[in-house]
Amino acid sequence: MSLDTSPAVRAVLFDLGGVILTIDFDRALAAWAPHSRLPAERLRAAFRWDEPFLQHETGGLSNEGYFAHVRQALELDCDAATVEAGFNAILVAEIEETTRLVEQVRRRVPCYAISNTNEAHMEQMRRAFPALLPRFDRVFASHEIGHRKPQPAAFQHVLREIGLSAPDVLLFDDLPVNVDGARAIGLQAVLVRSPDDVRNALALRGLLQT
Rank of each mutant, 00 (worst) to 15 (best):
S142V: 13
V198Q: 05
I162V: 09
L191W: 11
A166D: 03
I185C: 02
A93H: 08
P152R: 10
P152C: 07
T99W: 00
R148T: 13
L171Y: 10
V177R: 14
V190N: 06
E94R: 12
E96M: 09
H157R: 14
Q104E: 15
L171F: 15
L132M: 08
R199T: 03
V179F: 05
A182D: 12
C111T: 11
S115R: 07
L159K: 07
E144T: 05
E119P: 03
L175W: 14
N178K: 15
L202V: 02
P152E: 05
E96I: 07
E97Y: 01
R106S: 11
E123M: 10
E97H: 04
A154Y: 07
H121F: 01
H121D: 00
N118T: 10
D173F: 05
S142F: 01
A85F: 01
A154M: 14
I114S: 02
R127C: 07
C111V: 15
F155G: 06
A113F: 04
L164K: 04
G181M: 09
D77A: 15
A81I: 04
A153E: 15
E94H: 04
R135M: 13
L202I: 06
R127M: 14
A184E: 11
A182L: 12
L91I: 13
R148Q: 10
R199D: 01
N200S: 10
V102A: 00
A80S: 13
H143I: 03
A85R: 13
E75L: 12
R108F: 02
R107P: 01
R199H: 13
C111S: 05
V177H: 11
A166Q: 02
V177N: 08
I95H: 05
D196P: 00
V105H: 05
F155A: 12
T98D: 00
F129V: 02
F136G: 07
V83Y: 14
L76I: 00
Q124L: 13
N116I: 00
T82C: 08
A128Q: 15
F136Q: 13
V109I: 09
L170N: 07
V70K: 00
R199A: 14
V190Y: 04
A166H: 03
A81C: 01
R71Y: 06
R107V: 01
R126T: 12
T117R: 07
L175S: 15
C78H: 07
L91P: 00
M125N: 11
V179R: 03
D168F: 04
A81Y: 02
A153T: 06
A184R: 14
V179E: 04
V192H: 09
A81K: 07
G146S: 06
F136E: 06
E161R: 14
L191P: 03
N116C: 05
G163T: 11
R108N: 04
L133W: 06
R107T: 03
L133G: 11
A182V: 14
R135Y: 01
Q156F: 12
L164R: 15
L171D: 08
H157L: 08
L175T: 14
A81D: 02
L187W: 01
V83P: 02
C78Y: 03
H147Y: 12
